Amino acid sequence: MTKYPSISTYHALGDKGKLLDECVKFEGEVILTEKVDGTNSRIIMLPDGNYVLGSREELLFAKGDLIGNPALGIVEALKGVADLLPHSGQNMIVAYLELYGGKVTAASKQYTGQKSIGWRLFDVSVFTDISMLFTKSVQELAAWRDNGGQTFLNEDQLKKASIDYGLELTPRLATVEALPTTIEATYELLKEMLPKTKVALDESAGGRSEGIVARTFSRSAIAKIRFEDYERHNKRR
């Protein structure tokens, strides 16, 4: 129900990682944010004031548990954060964060040379009819989620939520009228926007960023633009 949906690459992936000319269509202004290379984490805030922590795939800890699943260091890093979040009220609210640094991923050294841990909020969803969702099977929920059933905050609402929760957002890089459509021009935009990461945790960090997430203001369209994809494409072309 609360698993974060997959984000498409901006240019479609072809055989052996080669990029295709086909790209995601955006209408209206496009917000560009840094894509942080960490582990997708979620704080599920329940209407009764309890919460559950999870990775993208698993639920790891519930408020009051004596023992939590230590996977990826999510519980250790975010339990104190979740304890301080305000009561969610009538709805179930899920805050999605990227946990990075430490030993979280192979790219952690790009953000820290001292094994520091950081996190950034990148999305928030609101679930208004929980009882109806609990009547669905796992397969029905997966289909509902994968077809856009979850409701996410728009950009202004997300900025307000970050203030209310005391959580920093992933860096906002720019708002553009349109994205380039060719593979070459998109790669140039990527290099121009992110010569190095904006979320380094210390001066000894390597500094390489994973890439950009592009989205419309309302989040009707969203896609990821990663250095890895465009560099691999250029090597195999």
Rank of each mutant, 00 (worst) to 15 (best):
A205Y: 07
L153H: 09
M132C: 13
L133A: 14
E76A: 13
D83Y: 00
R42N: 05
L133K: 15
R219M: 13
F26R: 05
N50I: 03
D164T: 08
T216R: 02
D37T: 03
L179N: 10
A77F: 06
E168V: 07
L190Y: 14
V176Q: 10
Q150F: 07
V36G: 10
S8V: 04
L53K: 02
W144Q: 11
G17Y: 01
I130S: 11
K159I: 04
Y111N: 00
L78Y: 02
V124Q: 05
L84K: 15
G28C: 11
K198C: 09
D229Y: 10
I212M: 04
G28E: 03
R42S: 01
Q90Y: 01
Y4I: 03
G118C: 03
S116Y: 13
I183T: 10
K25G: 09
E184G: 11
L72W: 00
D164L: 12
K3F: 01
S41P: 06
G101I: 04
L169H: 05
L78T: 08
V36H: 00
D129Y: 13
S137D: 06
A214W: 01
S162A: 15
T128M: 08
G101P: 07
T181R: 14
E184D: 12
L99D: 00
G89L: 11
P70W: 06
L201M: 03
Q114K: 15
G102Q: 00
S162K: 11
T170C: 12
A82S: 03
D48S: 13
D123L: 08
M92S: 15
L121N: 06
K115H: 10
A77N: 07
A214C: 06
L84C: 12
E177I: 09
I44A: 05
L97E: 02
Q114I: 05
G17H: 06
L32D: 06
E188A: 13
L121T: 09
V24S: 05
D146N: 14
V75S: 02
I117S: 09
R232C: 09
D48G: 11
K16M: 09
L99H: 01
I7F: 06
A95L: 07
I183Q: 09
A106C: 04
G149E: 02
G73M: 03
D164F: 07
E140S: 11
Q110D: 14
R237C: 15
V52W: 00
I43C: 06
V24Y: 05
G207F: 06
I7P: 02
F227H: 08
T105F: 08
M92P: 03
K103G: 13
I74R: 02
V213Q: 04
P171C: 05
F217T: 13
A200P: 03
V52H: 02
H87A: 14
F122M: 01
Y111C: 04
K196G: 07
A214I: 02
D229A: 12
T182W: 12
N69W: 01
S162L: 07
G211V: 06
K115D: 13
R232N: 11
K235Q: 15
L20N: 10
R236F: 10
